[in-house]
Design a protein around this nucleic acid. Sequence first.
DNA 1: TGGGTGACCATAG
DNA 2: ACTATGGCCACCC
Length: 116
Amino acid sequence: MKLSEKTYSFFDDVYSVVRLIPKGRVTNYGAIAKYLGAARSSRMVGWAMNAAHGQKEYVPAHRVLNRNGMLTGKNHFASANEMQMLLEKEGIVVVKDTVKNFKTLFWDPMEELKIK
DNA sequence: TGGGTGACCATAG
DNA sequence: ACTATGGCCACCC
């Protein structure tokens, strides 16, 4: 489905945070939702990703996983193995659709971006 | 205006 | 350990 091109607000916020994820690190939907405001559901973050691949600015959606470190969004990429391939290219090990050392590689915007 | 939807998450049984 | 379920809320039609 196609989203209107002028009414970005929440989606923009999501994309901004996702772009800040360093190479070789990953985060999850819940952390982003929490960073943007606890009142906002993490489902929206996932939904924003659904529209992320068409953005002008590159959005590294492959660095966003669910809370278990699983590649739940891989089916929404161009090809089924693209998400894993992109991650491995950054040095992340993926086994059975799950990121290894997820806890170590986890990038928490609440910590890294230091909200006051 | 309102209902359906979703790449989630936490809890209960 | 597993499945079911309800909450969540921006977005689209």
